[in-house]
Each structure stands twice: as structure tokens, then as C-alpha cells.
């Protein structure tokens, strides 16, 4: 998968390049709008990450050029989160946006979603190691033992399982499980994870729910 990152801020471009490469993507960085346009016209990309404030040719102009030629998914980054800005970006044909400062885990989650072309296959039955979850029957079991979860605990485990091996940020978890889109400074998510662990992980081995310090949580077999 090829990703074009158009970002003039060197440090940001650098960590996006490193991070996305580590996640297995082929990353090309363009330092300004004109270079971005040039890259776009020479190579076929699967996703474009576009900073709005760019020298030479700004993000909105580049987005219009891109949309005239291709339907490549575009994720735009903006430091101004005024509603008009977001609306403008989406009206010009961007697929998603992130407001700076954003968490890297959040960016990665958005990138994965945008690259998952076509409608998401609704999995009804999840299995990771000896942990099983059945969406229709609302059943969870580990090592063959039935585990009783509250609604929110079930929703949290469902989210973790459907994004197995991905690091999920607290913000993403809060918005998916509780539909809380505001920036919460409470440790609600940590508490919820702790309680889920007590039921799903603590009595068993290997541990499946991992804390990625400073980033979020990850459900994975590999430690």
C-alpha cells in the first residue's frame, strides 16, 4: 500500500514517514503542495495524507486538483478545528480529517479504515487465542468458560477484537463504546479496561489486553 504524505513541517513529516513505514506502508513525503501535485501525477497512491497549511499550493487547492483526477482517499490534517474548515474539507471531497494535535494511534486507525476498501465485513464471531466472542448471541468465553460481561464491557471487548493487533487510543475507545466525542480528562477508559481485564485476562494465560504506554490499548496474542 502506497501512501503520499504532503506535510511541510519536517518533524511531523519525519515521524509520519517512520511510523507508517513501521506499519508496513510505502510512504512518500512531499514538502509542499507543488511537490505533492508532482508526486500525485507520477505515482499511483492508495491514500493521501494532506496538511492544509502548505506553502506554494495549499491543501485545499491540491485537494481540488486530486479530486479532478482520481478518487484516492484523502485524509486531511488541520490545526484549525473551526467547523467551517472541516466542512470545507469534506465538501471538497476529503474522506476524513484530523485536528492537530492528534494522537498517532488515532491517525493509524483512520488510515486503516480508509484503506479498508469496500464495505466493512461484519464479523459475527471473533476468536483470538482461546478468547471467543459471538455478537449475535452476546456470548463471551475464554478457555471454554463462559464469561458474563456488562453491555459496555461487551462493546469494549467487541471493539478491541474487531481491531485486534491495532493500538486503540483512549479517545477512539471512548467515542466508540460510549459515543463520547468530547475530550475527557478522566480515566474512564482505563477503569473500564481494568474491569474488563479482571474478567477476561486476569484468571488466564496468556494475557491478551496490553497497555501501550502513552498511546492506548491493544488486544493481541503476541506480547
Amino acid at each position: 500500500m502506497r501512501i503520499l504524505v504532503v506535510e511541510d513541517e519536517a518533524k511531523a513529516a519525519d515521524y509520519l514517514h517512520k511510523g507508517l513505514s513501521e506499519s508496513g506502508y510505502q510512504v512518500t513525503v512531499a514538502q509542499d503542495g507543488l511537490e505533492g501535485q508532482h508526486q500525485f501525477s507520477t505515482v499511483v497512491f492508495d491514500l493521501i495524507i494532506l496538511d492544509v497549511m502548505l506553502p506554494a499550493l495549499d491543501g485545499w487547492q491540491l485537494l481540488q486538483i486530486i479530486r479532478r483526477q482520481a478518487a484516492t482517499p484523502v485524509l486531511f490534517l488541520t490545526a484549525r478545528d473551526a467547523v467551517e474548515d472541516r466542512v470545507k474539507g469534506l465538501e471538497l471531497g476529503a474522506d476524513d480529517y484530523l485536528v492537530k494535535p492528534f494522537s498517532y494511534a488515532e491517525l493509524l486507525a483512520r488510515v486503516r479504515t480508509l484503506l479498508r476498501r469496500g464495505p466493512l465485513r461484519e464479523t459475527q464471531h471473533f476468536r483470538l487465542a482461546d478468547l471467543e466472542l459471538d455478537v449475535l448471541q452476546r456470548r463471551v468465553s475464554r478457555a471454554g468458560e463462559r464469561i458474563t460481561l456488562t453491555n459496555k464491557e461487551f462493546a469494549l471487548l467487541h471493539l478491541l477484537l474487531s481491531h485486534a493487533d491495532e493500538v486503540l487510543s483512549r479517545t477512539l475507545i471512548a467515542s466508540h463504546v460510549w459515543q463520547m466525542n468530547f475530550d475527557s480528562d478522566t480515566n474512564v477508559v482505563d477503569v473500564a479496561i481494568r474491569r474488563l481485564r479482571a474478567k477476561v485476562d486476569d484468571p488466564y494465560r496468556p494475557k491478551l489486553i496490553h497497555t501501550v504506554r502513552g498511546v492506548g490499548y491493544q488486544l493481541t496474542e503476541a506480547p
Partner: peptide, 13 residues
């Protein structure tokens, strides 16, 4: 109700 669910875990702790 939604908020109570959200803060439930923290409250219980």
C-alpha cells in the same frame, strides 16, 4: 443515563 454509564466504572472504583 448515557453519562452514568460512562462514569459507572469510575464511580464503582
Amino acid at each position: 443515563q448515557q453519562l452514568c454509564e460512562y462514569f459507572e466504572g469510575m464511580a464503582e472504583e
